[in-house]
């Protein structure tokens, strides 16, 4: 028989506006463990609950719903505490000053993430146009020559890499005027160019939206963009990850 744990999503100011009726993992109601200044957003979860993709998305989407209205300091997925008293002790007592500092630092800020992906054909045409040697290698490599084809593919891969770094720079520079800070994530797809997190002021969202739409038009036919947000300031919390030594 399973007992219940408390899944922690993140922390907001006690007076922050938070949408009504929020649901978390397994559709459970979001509760607040709070005092006069801080509110920890939590929901109940069985201690033997498995993590499914819905659970990951529920955690992310809950935080996105909150940050649309108020600053939230996100908890990494998977922090489960035995009960509300533990939440209270760990967050509202032991880490109180730190959390208040973070909420202040990120006051009225949110993150959006832009991913740019090359159109495959556009990218390949581009690398061939730039590098006559590569075009020649392509022309001279017989289809049945497997090791030749591997060499060709390797050369294409290297050429894409340099194309990518130029384009990534473009994307980052494009958004620099709109962002308080930027952070570059690893890209994963073969034709992904850049995955850039932007820390922006809530008041600037419309400008950022417009900048994304504008870049989208500029690179149309060459690249496609994904635009995700609003998100909590994940990429900008790195240097303040709370370790146990904060007890000391």
């Amino acid at each position: 028989m399973s007992s219940m744990l408390v899944h922690v999503y993140g922390v907001v100011g006690a007076d922050a506006r938070v949408p009504e009726g929020l649901r978390g993992r397994m559709g459970r109601e979001i509760r607040r463990v709070e005092d006069d200044e801080l509110a920890v957003l939590v929901s109940d979860v069985e201690d033997d609950a498995r993590v499914r993709r819905e659970d990951l998305l529920a955690h992310a989407h809950l935080l996105e719903a909150v940050v649309a209205e108020s600053t939230v300091i996100p908890t990494r997925f998977g922090v489960l505490m035995p009960d509300d008293d533990t939440v209270r002790r760990e967050f509202l007592v032991d880490r109180r000053a730190h959390l208040l500092g973070l909420l202040h630092a990120f006051d009225d800020c949110l993150q959006v993430t832009v991913t740019a992906t090359y159109d495959e054909e556009a990218a390949l045409r581009e690398v061939l146009a730039r590098d006559p040697d590569l075009a020649a290698l392509r022309a001279s490599t017989a289809p049945g020559d497997t090791s030749g084809q591997v060499r060709l593919g390797e050369a294409v891969s290297a050429a894409l890499e340099s194309l990518r770094s130029g384009a990534a720079h473009l994307v980052i520079e494009w958004f620099r005027p709109y962002a308080l800070a930027t952070s570059v994530n690893e890209v994963r797809g073969a034709y992904d160019v850049a995955n850039v997190a932007l820390l922006v002021r809530r008041a600037d969202r419309v400008r950022v939206d417009a900048a994304v739409a504008d870049l989208d038009r500029q690179v149309s036919g060459q690249m496609s963009l994904r635009y995700v947000g609003p998100q909590p300031p994940y990429a900008f919390l790195d240097h303040v990850v709370i370790e146990e030594r904060s007890w000391a």
């Binding site: 744990l5 922690v8 993140g10 922390v11 993590v51 990951l56 955690h59 992310a60 935080l63 300091i73 996100p74 908890t75 990494r76 997925f77 998977g78 922090v79 489960l80 505490m81 533990t86 760990e90 880490r95 993430t113 994530n185 690893e186 995955n195 997190a197 998100q231 909590p232 994940y234 990429a235 919390l237 790195d238 990850v241 709370i242 370790e243 146990e244």
Partner: peptide, 16 residues
Amino acid sequence: DTILDKGLVIDIYVRV
């Protein structure tokens, strides 16, 4: 890149 990698973490309570 987000909830699995970033955010407040209190190690002893991380259970997935």
